[in-house]
Simulated scan of single mutants.
Amino acid sequence: MIKNITDANFNEETKDGYVFVDFWAEWCGPCRMLGPVLDELSTELEGKVEIKKVNIDENQAIAQQYGIMSIPTMILFKDGLPVEKIQGFQPKQALKQYLESKI
C-alpha cells in the first residue's frame, strides 16, 4: 500500500533509503493512470524502494520546495536527498527498469 505523505512529515518519510515520491492531484488524468502502475511497482519492488505520494493541492509547500511545475512528477530520494526527477506518465516497465537501475 502506498503511503500518502504531507508537508509536515515529508522529511521524516524520505530520510531513509530509497523513496520514490509521486507528486499528484485528484484532477490530473495522467496521475490517475499512474496510480495503479505505482501500486504494482510498490509490491514488486518491496524491500528495495518505498513508493509514496504527495497531493500537491493539499501540500503546496513541499511541491514548491522541489519545483513541481507539472504533474505527475516523481522524484527519487536516497537518504533524504533528491537523486532525479521524472515528469509525465510513464509505462510500468519503463518505471521498473528506471528504478532497478538506480537502486
Rank of each mutant, 00 (worst) to 15 (best):
P91T: 10
T14D: 03
D7F: 10
V21D: 04
I51M: 05
A8K: 15
A63H: 00
E40V: 11
N9T: 06
S70K: 00
G35Y: 12
K96F: 08
M1P: 10
A63T: 01
Q64N: 14
D7I: 06
T43L: 08
G67R: 08
G67Q: 13
F89I: 02
S42H: 09
F23G: 01
F20H: 13
P36C: 08
N4M: 02
D79P: 00
Q65D: 05
S42E: 11
C31E: 08
A61T: 08
V21K: 04
Q90H: 14
E46G: 04
M33K: 15
F10E: 00
E13A: 03
V21T: 10
F20S: 11
G17H: 06
E46S: 14
F23N: 01
R32E: 03
V83W: 02
I56R: 09
L41Y: 11
A63R: 02
Q60S: 13
N55H: 09
I56A: 11
Q60E: 14
D7C: 06
K78Y: 09
E58A: 14
W24A: 12
A94L: 13
I103Q: 04
E26T: 14
I103T: 14
T73L: 05
G29T: 14
V54G: 08
S101I: 10
F77Y: 02
W24N: 13
L99K: 12
S42F: 02
F20L: 12
L95W: 07
N9H: 01
N4Q: 04
M74S: 12
K15I: 02
N4P: 00
V37A: 04
M69N: 08
P72T: 07
K96V: 13
F77T: 04
Q90T: 15
V83I: 15
K85F: 00
L45R: 13
E58Y: 07
Q64A: 15
I71N: 12
P91I: 09
T43M: 08
C31I: 06
E40Q: 15
P72V: 11
L99G: 13
L95E: 08
Q65W: 06
K52T: 01
L41I: 12
E100Y: 04
D79W: 02
E50C: 03
C28A: 06
L95K: 11
Q60P: 10
